[in-house]
Design a binder for these strands. Structure first.
Lengths: 343, 343
DNA sequence: AGTGCTATGATAGACGGGTTCTTTTGTCTA
DNA sequence: TAGACAAAAGAACCCGTCTATCATAGCACT
């Protein structure tokens, strides 16, 4: 009648006690063998190992975790797995986790809707995790008021700083400054902006960087356009700009995909890139998809970000947790979509 | 001296007993409150909940799992997270997992090297998983001899069938037939092939489909080319074909990225697509990256695959596990990169 | 006073691995 | 033959949650 068969008939996993019974020894002798401890007779050891083999013994994760209070896994909570930003997050964290011999426990919240940090931590905390990582690609409704759970490391991946939680992100503000400086040095001043959807945190900071860079040079920023990160939306925006703005000399698209679309639109409108208009993007994400990628862009070190995120979420003993805000700078990659503006 | 402090000073997680002590009730009552069982006085309930709140109680995953023998997580073992095939796997499985209120425990093996199934299951079995999913994107050295661990559902995502393990995959052979039939109907016969790296299982089946389709029509397959899935490799191959093969009327590239590169190469060589040469790809992966995507391709239902994979790895009680091989057909998407061949 | 119900406590055990303490067994030496 | 000592193995208990009993108290309704 037991929910799980406690004798040898059913599907209950094989425990040390089962092995011990089969080998005719006590459970702790099995433990000694399993953990390679000394003081076991060689014959006994072999007998126990044979029993393990035969029964297909594997140590229970639950039992072990209960005992030593560690899970060897880090929780990652994001919304849409397929978005470039989130994908690169998984990738970077997977590397770092592997270095620490650690797994990732992944939870995808809604694909499209925002979620609260409280809800996210509540769900993650119920899972086997030694630390919690939350990708906040759009502003959470409770960001200001959020308090991390005590007793478990928490890191939010976002550009916004938080007084009580460590935040880590690629520098989505600084990347704009890098690109704008590059364009300024070439001599551009009329630089239009094609952004992602305005709810995106990355968008908010990339755009702020564009705007601040212009204002620092006392150039009035002209109406930014809003896309949806896709090449098609970049194309639409590029087409619009080609037809309505004859003074612009450069376009800053907030990601490479839109930049690629914008370039196609400019060329379809009879403008040359980079001779007539320079175009820059962000992410360095085109290589696999576009032959002879010529786009000037910013590349982020996603593995470094992954490492920082991981190590703050699962601090080594002693490193424990002041709240910090880490911004990892990108690297300007100059290709051939930028040039000195026409006279 | 205890490794974990057993009193109230240290960092030991808060247990039910702690809550009970704080609320002045028995551990039993805390359990009743935690699990929403009846027969608890409203005042008592509130007192207990207040204590939980204040102490930051969260039920121990280890304790609970140990008790009820379930982890509510499925293990996923793949090599390179960022490859399209693997990414789409994470995406599809994440959806299915969420529907079952389940997390994914992700382990990235080596980025580049193949791994044995025995090694993969060994690692996954040591984690909190109710089922094991292994993405075999290249042939494992021990595929033939592999035996799944008893007592835990195992699914391999691959086109190869296995006598003792359920395998699930998108139909990487059938997609070729769909595309070839489409080209045959238009009147093409000289159809060249640009494949991925030959160690790739997907490549092996896509290529076999191309070859069989031709042979069924008694057309001799002409030397397939090998790329690396990237647009640049597709460009190189396309350039080569444009210069060396004046009789071909169509190119089948084994993924969209290479197809996109091939189209660029053909156009750079003065050939029109689709008027002079038709081009098809697989995956329907260009939309975000290329404006006005015109590539005829095959789209796979990755969420259906994810669901099949998940449900065979973590069977509902009763559904338990005959070994099957499931191939999920793709869908032909006809755009404007294919046309009737020139006369 | 008896019956039935609700609210709670006390106690114990199952789950599986690991640690600590203790006991048994075996061998060597005085 | 007794004593010393080490190796081998066992017994007990802990980790935290949940459930299964049982016991007890309080209250209300007959």
């Amino acid at each position: 009648m037991a929910r799980r068969p406690s004798n040898d008939t059913g599907t209950r996993p094989v425990s040390m006690a089962d092995v011990a019974r089969a080998a005719g020894v006590s459970q702790q002798t099995v433990s000694r063998v399993a953990n390679g401890l000394p003081n076991v007779n060689e014959q006994t050891r072999q007998r126990v190992q044979a029993a393990m083999q035969e029964l297909g013994f594997r140590p229970s994760y639950a039992g072990r975790s209960l005992r030593d209070g560690r899970y060897h896994s880090v929780g990652l909570c994001i919304n849409d797995v397929t978005k470039f930003g989130n994908l690169s997050m998984i990738d970077g964290i997977a590397s770092a986790a592997r270095e620490h011999n650690c797994a990732i426990t992944l939870v995808e919240m809604s694909k499209t809707e925002e979620f609260s940090l409280a809800e996210a931590t509540r769900r993650m905390a119920a899972l086997p995790v030694d630390g919690i990582i939350i990708g906040m690609s759009r502003m959470a409704p409770d960001f200001e008021t959020f308090d991390p759970l005590p007793g478990i490391g928490t890191v939010i991946v976002t550009m916004y700083a938080h007084p009580r939680v460590t935040t880590v992100d690629s520098d989505h503000y600084g990347c704009s400054l890098l690109l704008m400086d590059h364009l300024f040095e070439l001599g551009h001043e009329q630089i239009r902006y094609i952004g992602g959807p305005s709810f995106s945190v990355d968008e908010q900071f990339r755009r702020a960087g564009w705007q601040d860079a212009l204002e620092r040079k006392h150039i009035e920023p002209v109406e930014p356009l809003e896309g949806d990160w896709s090449a098609n939306s970049g194309y639409e925006a590029g087409r619009y700009l080609a037809e309505h703005d004859r003074t612009m000399t450069a376009i800053y698209a907030a990601n490479d995909q839109m930049a690629n679309g914008a370039i196609a639109a400019l060329r379809d409108s009879g403008l040359r890139v980079p001779e007539d208009v320079s175009v820059v993007g962000v992410d360095d994400s085109l290589d696999d998809f576009v032959a002879h990628n010529e786009l000037t862009t910013v590349r982020f070190d996603l593995h470094q970000r992954g490492r920082e995120v991981f190590e703050h979420a699962v601090p080594e003993a002693g490193t424990a947790g002041k709240t910090v805000a880490i911004r990892i700078p990108g690297q300007l990659i100059i290709r051939h979509s930028t040039a000195i503006p026409r006279a």
